[in-house]
Design a binder for these strands. Sequence first.
DNA 1: GCCGTTTTCGGCCCGACTGTTTTCAGTCG
Length: 586
Amino acid sequence: MKNRENEVAKQLANIFNKIADALEFKSEIPFKIIAYRKAARVLNDLTEDIEVLWEENKLRTIPGVGEGIAKKIDEYLKTGKMRKYEEALKNIPSGLLSLLNIQSMGPKTLRLAHNKLGVNSKGDLEKVIEDGSLAKLPNMGERKVENIKKGLKIFSAQEKRISIGVALPLVENVINWIKKGAVAAPISSERIEPAGSLRRMKETIGDIDILCTPTYHLSGRGKNGTKIIEHFTNFPETSRILAKGETKGSIIVNQRYQIDLRVVKEECFGAALQYFTGSKSHNIKLRSIAKEKGLKISEYGVFDGAKKIAGEKEEEVYSILGLPYIPPELREDRGEIELKTIPELINYGDIKGDLHIHSRYSDGQNSIKEIAEFAKNMDYEYIAITEHSKSAKYAGGIDEKILEQEIEEIEQVEKECGIRIFKGIELEILNPLANGLDFDDKILEKLDIVIGAVHTSSKKDMTEAICAACCNSNVDIIAHPTGRLISRREGYKIDISKVIEKAASTNTALEINAYYDRLDLSDINARKAKENGVKIVINSDAHSTVMLKSMRFGIGVARRAWLSKGDILNTLSVEELEDWFKNHKR
DNA sequence: GCCGTTTTCGGCCCGACTGTTTTCAGTCG
């Protein structure tokens, strides 16, 4: 039996990453660090159950796991401990290594700040920035400190928010846990749903809210709410219980994530769901509309004087105000309340294929065949294999010769698996000085799909280079157009409005990259692109088969951007898409 | 610490960029 989302493999990945951080901090040989990081990455995305592999003595079949790491995994699975981990973290204050996540703060700088200035925490770091002592260290200066300060700002802003990619699976686990503790109630229609920014599919989430009705009760006697909440607070990964009552429970999970559960009566569930979903400004506007009509909205329902006139279903709350039902992803007070008709948003089942996937040929984890089979199981009609091109050396970029070999393999697998596999490349857009694209047109013409992409973190303005790529008749899509990483860095320097205009005039599609730390384009930019008539494509940018599942985060962004099925390239059928590839730049 | 159609030892992770220097150290992808 597969354990929950391969929890143990993820724990191990986390441990190996921390070891790598610690070794980096101690300036160990880089190759060891790389090896730990690789093992961590592979374990994090592992599809097989790690404990099964362990029992069958097959740990070493995992790529990146050799004798040393296999031994450490074995030790951990046997004893729940790992000596190497404890040893690596010895003498390093807890919390210090997390500062490595600050942009421009690498292991060398951190060590220097720690050794010379006694920096042990974020607070210490802020202090030595302010009093100027950090800038006085060797090889440091005003500008470096300024960059760290900026990095710190992003780090602080994101520190308390949870990425949707972490929050959603976590909530699903918690909901399953609550359901598992429930006994089918005599009344049907028991309900449990996440609310808040998570339900609105925001890219980052503050606290996680879950609502349920008391019909989710445990066997035994006692008040329903109390029982449910008692069970909720026993969630295995709970590190602290903040509150535990009859209608509300609140826990901290894994030392970091706050989750609230509210138990609300069946007849109020719709109103409560609406209320707790927000956003705040959306709700304020609804309340003012209600007021004009002489009504009052609260989490308990819609009231005409003392009389409750709606509340069981969320739809009622809107209809009673004379509004169409507004999907959660639109509730940001960005004009959705004023709409006469709500756009038909793309649905989670509308995507027919994934057009940006890496296999083992570059830095992906799986073979083309594994990817094809997985995609077929997801009911996709097609996929595209798009490795990094040769200049992306750090990501195992491939040259023309290997690309030709890969094309042959793709054709072979396509025959075997019966799913259309487009032959593609994620083509490096070189920085302005290096001029142009990574491959010449001759080879690009052989491919079905060319995705132009920038990866280098150059501070040069990339607008012109990307616009030039749009003008190339072989380039179909621009991947992750701004290059931001939500938790770590702003994008590269780019005038996104210009890129959108150029994409529109050249019929180049722009990507919503569904990887949860990118979600790039953002909902705001994607909406701008739509308004300019740009085609959007939602891609997973998967480096492993598991990552193919992250498509839903991209669809969330698309919904928040008011996109419909018709705006999105990979809702087309195979034939329509082939047609598009052939003709969009003619 | 991993890995092997060149190897059980000796490669692997390299190049661009920034900001610090006066020839180079550190970060990033």
